[in-house]
Design a protein around this nucleic acid. Structure first.
Length: 682
RNA sequence: UGGCUUAUGGUGUAACUGGCAACACGUCUGGUUUUGGUCCAGAAGAGUCUAGGUUCGAGCCCUAGUAAGCCAACCA
């Protein structure tokens, strides 16, 4: 019954239009065409999500087609990895296909091209051809071989195919137009000689077709209705259509439908890179430990890190599809994985940075197995037992000898609850020779055990801490990851290499203590370490060495608060606090006040004006002058700027030509308020 | 000096044939809470790149600018 109509993205709109024009729902067919020369990454999931998503939406088949026309770079290993990744994401392809399946058909069409004078063999060096090709702003010139006879072309091409020539000796080019404004149309190469072993066709061919000649025709042969790719292929569309129209002439009876290429903006993620080449560099230079290193944006990396397919699919869906360049904030990816895991991950306790806690009034040698809820977000998750004893580990961060009332954790003389256990009170500390805390001593309220329902157990205390019993705790290695790059867009700088931004501290390994129930954890299992974050069991785990990857931390408003308080300390300079803090510059507030100015009732306008005048005392001319260029229709902002300017002039600012121009323009404006303000200071 | 594409809060995406600029993330309040998590309630933040034009009315249509991206591999 929910009539909620979701707005369509531009590709869906095109499809709806085509459907309305009678294309026929059964003729819809999509494809995902990876080149098997590297691992899939989060950027590919967008392309995968679009084409496979469309397949699901319209109940149409989606082919998985490996674009394997370059035997020099492509390998079976990548084919296997790509299939695994797509399957893991939960998508099902209709047919598994390879461009190399069409080599014979492509070859046959090429012969027809040659016979009809639409293609010719060129025998120049690549340098010579590059020169003749011209530049985006200069037209190219014809190759001296452009007008070879059909017979000669046929003979040469046949001998190319038979392996009679070395690589680079000849190529086959389409004959289009060397002066075409689109450089791709300047007699593009269709075939080059490559005496390489192909992962599927072996040594059957020593000429291999180029992308443009192969891709569109593969779409055509498979009768793909909509061929979706990223924006940088937009210029290729013209050539795609040209090739398509030629072969359509030959084969319209076998293949009646003409595919349609459309382009969308690729996904960029802040603080990461997406280029396969650069990702490979990280692997080869040992910056990361492999394609599936949990810091890598590859699908295999995310999988090993502990991301779920559901989270990644949600992410891609949320990101949307459009044509403008974009940079998605990683916080959105993190949100998606937290949202998923919050509902599904069992809660456990683990201490990553331990400090010893002794409960002085708890009986020596006593141990209790306390009831703990596995996941309060999931009623079916059940309960488990966790061991409790006199000596525990808690997080070093969870104790301060003295603390203000904002600190909800343990400090001397204050009470907190130990999760699933008792309320304790900080009593004293033991320090080593360096003054570091080695033990915290506390007392517990024996009647306050969680879940007993006693009055003491129901007492409200400000904080709750996680803990593990020293005697029962198991050691585990925890790998905490930080972003790989320190720059928001590491590969977008012309003059700085992306490697310069590598974060040297992207991996932190800690020895942690975890509750004993985790001994049963299997590789790939995901948990929430309470109050810390989500973690998954890494595949390096062995029977006697448990290893966890930190997937993502819990949302942490406290650490943000703390950071703000830190910079807010009286010692911090007022001036510098203006930069990093919520406190905004006077000019910004003035601008904001200005926006609403014209809508305000008169008395409020007066009040706002005084406010602006006060703020203006702290504004410099350099801050104000950009506002002179503000759009004419932003009258309010101009008024605010005018009022501010008045204050500055009063303080002795000399009029400049820019100022005069700004005032004059206001005097000529249709808005009376603006005119009045300009009049006042002119 | 060319061609193509794009321009909406900090980020991303909407706004059906012109009609109160919406949603998500992020940020900030407050409430609930045995996770400073979750959940709940709320707030701030955009005059839709600029200048003109058409119109009762423009983010959307028209004109001219500006800015950004892509295009010169025997890569895909």
């Amino acid at each position: 019954m929910s009539e909620e109509k979701k707005s369509l993205n531009f590709i869906e709109q095109i499809i709806e239009e085509d459907l309305a024009n009678g294309i026929g729902k059964n003729n819809l067919r999509f494809r995902f065409p990876p080149e098997p020369n590297g691992y899939l990454h989060i950027g590919h999931t967008k392309a995968i999500g679009i084409s496979f998503g469309l397949g699901e939406k319209y109940n149409a088949p989606v082919n998985l087609r490996f674009d394997d026309t370059n035997p020099a770079k492509e390998e079976q290993e990548y084919v296997d990895a790509i299939k695994e990744d797509i399957t893991w994401l939960g998508y099902k392809w209709d047919k598994e296909l390879y461009s190399s399946d069409y080599f014979q058909q492509l070859y046959d069409w090429s012969i027809q091209f040659i016979k009809e004078g639409k293609a010719y063999v060129d025998s120049q060096s690549s340098e010579a051809m590059a020169e003749q090709k011209g530049t985006p702003t200069q037209p190219g010139v014809d190759s001296p071989y452009r007008n070879r006879s059909v017979e000669e072309n046929l003979d040469l091409f046949n001998r190319m195919k038979n392996g009679e020539f070395d690589e680079g000796a000849h190529i086959l080019r389409a004959k289009i137009d060397m002066k075409h404004p689109n450089m791709l149309m300047r007699d593009p190469i269709m075939y080059r000689i490559l005496k390489k072993h192909h992962h599927r066709t072996g040594d059957a061919w020593c000429i291999y077709p180029m992308y443009d000649w192969t891709h569109g025709e593969s779409d055509y042969i498979e009768q793909i209705s909509h061929s979706l790719c990223s924006l940088e292929f937009k210029p290729h569309r013209e050539l795609y259509n040209w090739f398509k129209n030629q072969v359509y002439d030959y084969s319209k009876n076998d293949y009646p439908m003409l595919p349609k290429q459309r382009e969308f903006a690729r996904l960029n993620l802040s603080y990461t890179i997406m280029s396969k080449r650069k990702l490979l560099q990280l692997v080869e230079e040992g910056i990361v430990k492999g394609w599936d290193d949990p810091r890598m944006p590859t699908i295999s990396g995310l999988r090993r890190r502990g991301y779920t397919p559901a989270a990644i699919r949600k992410f891609v869906e949320t990101v949307g599809v459009a044509k403008r360049d974009n940079v998605i904030d990683v916080s959105l990816l993190e949100f998606c994985i937290r949202e998923d895991l919050n509902k599904t991950a069992p809660r456990v306790m683990a201490v990553l940075d331990p400090v010893k806690l002794v409960i002085t009034n708890y009986p020596e040698g006593k141990e209790e197995w306390l009831e703990a809820e596995n996941n309060q977000e999931d009623e079916d998750a059940g309960f488990r037992k966790v061991p409790f004893s006199k000596e525990l580990y808690i997080e070093r961060d969870d104790f301060k000898e003295e603390a203000n009332s904002k600190y909800f954790r343990l400090s001397l003389g204050k009470e907190v609850r130990l999760k699933n256990a008792y309320i304790i009170k900080g009593e004293s500390v033991v320090k080593d020779v360096n003054g570091n805390i080695s033990e915290i001593h506390c007392t517990y309220d024996a009647d306050s055990l969680s879940g007993t329902g006693t009055e003491a157990s129901l007492r409200k205390v400000k904080g709750t801490l996680h803990w593990v019993s020293i005697k029962h705790a198991k050691k585990a290695e925890v790998r905490e990851y930080d972003r790989l790059f320190m720059d928001e867009a590491p590969d977008s700088h012309q003059d700085i290499d992306f490697m310069e931004f590598i974060n040297p501290n992207s991996l932190k390994i800690v020895d942690a203590f975890v509750e004993p129930s985790l001994l049963d954890a299997k590789i790939g299992d995901r948990f929430q370490f309470q109050r810390l974050g989500y973690f998954s069991v890494d595949k390096d785990t062995t029977s006697n060495h448990l290893i966890f990857n930190k997937i993502v931390g819990l949302r942490d408003t406290w650490s943000k608060q703390e950071a703000i308080q830190e910079t807010n300390k009286p010692s911090a300079k007022v001036n510098q606090s203006q930069q990093n803090l919520p406190q905004r510059k006077a000019i910004d507030i003035i601008q904001q006040l200005g926006k609403k100015y014209t809508n305000l009732p008169e008395d409020k306008q007066l009040k706002t004006k005084t406010e602006i005048q006060e703020l203006a005392e702290n504004v410099t001319y350099e801050e104000l002058s950009p506002l002179f260029a503000i759009a004419t229709k932003k009258v309010g902002t101009r008024i605010a700027a005018m009022i501010t300017l008045g204050v500055l002039l009063n303080k002795g600012l000399q009029k400049t030509p820019e100022i005069n121009e700004f005032i004059q323009k206001a005097l000529d404006d249709s808005d009376p308020l603006l005119r009045a303000e300009a009049e006042a200071i002119k």
